[in-house]
Design a protein around this nucleic acid. Sequence first.
DNA 1: TCGGTTGTGAACATCCGGTGACCAGAGGGC
DNA 2: GCCCTCTGGTCACCGGATGTTCACAACCGA
Lengths: 285, 285
Amino acid sequence: MTTERGTSAQPLRLAVIDTDSGFLQVLDKRLERLGWEHRTMASAVPVETIVAMRLSALVVDLAILGPGGWDYLHRVCSELPGLGVVVCTGQSTVAQRVRGLRLGADDWLTKPCHPEELIARVEAVVRRRRRSDARQERGPVAAGELEIRSDRFQAFVDGTSVDLTRREFELIELLAGSEGRVLEREEIYQRVWGYAMARGDRSVDVFVRKLRQKLEKASPDWRYIHTHFGVGYRFAAEAVDGSEPARREAEAAAAEPADGPAPATVRFGPGDGDVVAAELRALTS
Amino acid sequence: MTTERGTSAQPLRLAVIDTDSGFLQVLDKRLERLGWEHRTMASAVPVETIVAMRLSALVVDLAILGPGGWDYLHRVCSELPGLGVVVCTGQSTVAQRVRGLRLGADDWLTKPCHPEELIARVEAVVRRRRRSDARQERGPVAAGELEIRSDRFQAFVDGTSVDLTRREFELIELLAGSEGRVLEREEIYQRVWGYAMARGDRSVDVFVRKLRQKLEKASPDWRYIHTHFGVGYRFAAEAVDGSEPARREAEAAAAEPADGPAPATVRFGPGDGDVVAAELRALTS
DNA sequence: TCGGTTGTGAACATCCGGTGACCAGAGGGC
DNA sequence: GCCCTCTGGTCACCGGATGTTCACAACCGA
């Protein structure tokens, strides 16, 4: 039942660094049949190239890499924490295998091996990684006046596009998809940019600013992205009520997505609070 | 990134279903040294038991399971998608390995194998699981009027945020996670700050004060953090009504089950989780 | 009572996030 | 090819939030 058909349904992107033509040929045929996008390389390629390929998994024969292999393995694994890495190489010692796994490899397979097993192991590795990402895909999301349409790569307010660039859209899509949760910068970067965030990188902050500007202009009465000092950002549509401290109530209200009878008293500021509360409930349920 | 905080410092929980006494002995010694909580079982245990153990990973010899092994493997994997499963068994065919991996196993290791490699593979499996599961989202923890939500990096009283700083939150999260137990300053510092406490450092005390202030303001009728002179601090929700402190037990007992159907939410404190933990520790010492 | 321990308030040092300016490369129209 | 615009990304600055340290008061236990 939980036998992830999702795994096979969604095409994987796989790269193989190897030169064993016989093996590759068989593998190719299998991968073709599975519908995985794949690519073979005869030698190590720069890590940036790997990043650009946006792979799900990488299979590598350490022997191909030569002496710098360990270092290369380590760099790939740390820059792309989300990438599945399977070492598939000739005879090795226990110490070597342990070293490879400790450096960040997800699996180590000894040649000669059956392509089917390699594939099953890649699947297992990717399955582990996908489990959480998978739930992301869904129809238009609405919050406040905002509507996010994945199919259009765009957010709309009242039917008009907010004119988000690709990155901006990916960012808000991620945030909105985790509505109510605080996401740390590292996680955001990892999931939007696809690789590890360098220390001191402010890209996330800058894009949050750009997003806020555009959203503010398009939907002045709502705040969507909230900063949690020292932690990260949280998405939640909150009406910008004239009275200042409406924040805490709104937080509480937005906190319960569906998992229980939220505090029946959804209070906003005094006054029109109930109207806003009702509106919010309607939009978010 | 070296500052991974408490999350990574957390010891792993591992269970092994195997009977190879020689192998187990060596493994035990290694695991002990690593500080992993672990437990050995000589035969398949009900899936519910596995659930209750709240493991990070499970190592299993399929041969032990007998004919129902495949089914058992499948059930464990689908009921506990977050559990790392490593099959460690004798000679097998490619088809068997592929089947095991497809059923949900994360890795398949052939005996005889080196304990160190087994450990490295378990580490790799857990590493990847952790990363994809983002944070170990334990459900909200409740004590007294207080509710601690790790997805919000925040504590709430009656739905309103207590406005804790990141450090303050980490501190109370740690304390509440060890509810009822006295934690020494050194340990607190080590686990929240991530490095050893310098002699004479009062940071912990200062943060306890800040926490107490905020909690007091938000929830005046309860005391949460208790000082143990010369030792450290203990977290326990206690209603503040003048009577004698012997009431503590009763209070706690009464407070616990009162606030909802606990089974759904994973709770800290002296619940079944800690019993298992203690059992694990006892068995391995 | 006394020495050591903890609570407390405030000063001080750091760190963090918002912001605007700036830059380089991609792409598009001519 | 050339120019222009758009986009993603870096940098430096600044004000404010946060963490740390210190001195002293209050407290505990022997």
